[in-house]
Design a binder for these strands. Structure first.
Length: 330
DNA sequence: TAGGCCATCTGGTCCT
DNA sequence: AGGACCAGATGGCCTA
């Protein structure tokens, strides 16, 4: 289930005021015992406790009843040392946040080059990674065979292992008609025409609003995944040299929206802030007759179901697959 | 209300 | 000593 994620709180609020700060405490160790969480017990609390335990241990050693503890004796936790640990922990937390933000930014960039992208309807992290894996796979199939991707098969490949909602979403994205604003990219198209021949691909569904932004053809042309370079093109050797996708350095423009229905800015570029939410308009069994899912859905909201094969064994290219296969299998 | 997804905190490990 | 990375724990938000 994709959804619009809303941050629980303002980041600055979380950064500046952890829960124990909210309570007017100096550290989590000062929280009441029942309010403490095991994981949040914290170095500060455990250090304070450690300090106590060391003193107790010393007392016991004096009694001579307990064997001496091996290893270096822990330093006594002075107030200054506690302060240093506290400051270090705060810094580490900030670094960790920054690190995770960087990771999320990278995931966002990945979302932007996925077949369905919208600022308002974000794929989850795991679904983004799974779709990316499938997408690489599907594109490698197109490049390797040099054949027109059969629409149904292409979408099914993209949807391997994805959740039903995400599968529907991808299917909805890719069943767009041939009218495409981005067909202006004729030069790029001509370069790799022999390798990427998708002219016959047409998933147009009756009743689907004409998307101003992309269908499968433009999307494939648009993509210049750096991964092909980094892989050394082992499985693309049959392709003309000029067909190897250049390293992508341009802006990360979304090839397709979730609904294929972006608003356009004055310059013709898609206005990502005003993209519409995904609305499935399509009757079930439209894409793959005989693969209609029995998953219940609300009356009046027909779904565009894609059969989901949760196994990765049937992927076409074991070469690239062996590298990818181990990554996202559950 | 349960489950999914997320951000954050935390402690451990490895490396410089 | 300190930074990067990782995984576990936890609570908040949202949806079915």
């Amino acid at each position: 289930m994709t959804k619009t994620y809303v941050k629980p709180k303002e980041m600055s609020e979380l950064v500046n005021t952890p829960s124990w700060v909210d309570k007017g405490l100096n550290s989590q160790s000062e929280m009441k015992e029942e309010e403490r969480r095991p994981a949040a017990y914290g170095v500060l609390g455990s250090l304070a406790e450690e300090h106590d335990s060391i003193e107790e241990e010393d007392e016991e050693e004096e009694d001579g009843e307990k064997p001496k503890r091996r290893g270096p004796k822990k330093k006594k936790m002075t107030k200054a040392r506690l302060e240093r640990f506290r400051a270090r922990r705060v810094k580490a937390n900030a670094r960790e946040r920054t690190r995770m933000h960087g990771l999320n930014d990278a995931l966002d960039n990945l979302r932007r080059v996925m077949p369905c992208y919208s600022k308002t309807q974000k794929l989850s992290k795991i679904e983004t990674l799974r779709l990316a894996r499938n997408y690489i796979w599907a594109l490698s199939e197109v490049l390797e065979t040099g054949q027109t991707p059969e629409g149904k098969g292409f979408v099914e490949m993209l949807c391997k292992g994805l959740s039903q909602p995400t599968s529907n979403l991808v299917a909805g994205c890719l069943q767009l008609g041939p009218q495409a604003v981005l067909l202006e990219k004729h030069e790029e198209k001509s370069i790799c025409d022999s390798a990427i021949s998708v002219h016959n691909f047409n998933y147009q569904s009756p009743g689907l609003p004409s998307p101003p932004y992309g269908h499968m053809e433009t999307h494939l042309i648009h993509l210049k995944p750096p991964v092909f370079k980094s892989l050394g093109e082992p499985s693309f050797g049959s392709h003309p040299p000029d067909c190897s996708p250049p390293l992508y350095e341009g802006p990360l423009t979304p090839p397709l929206s979730i609904s294929g229905n972006f608003s356009l800015k004055q310059d013709g570029s898609p206005d990502l802030d005003k993209s519409y939410g995904f609305i499935p308009h399509y009757p079930s069994a439209n894409l793959s007759s005989g693969h209609v899912h029995s998953t219940p859905f609300q009356a009046g909201t027909p779904r565009y179901d894609v059969p989901i094969d949760m196994s990765y064994d049937s992927y076409p290219h074991p070469g690239i697959g062996t590298q990818l296969n181990a990554i996202f299998t559950d």
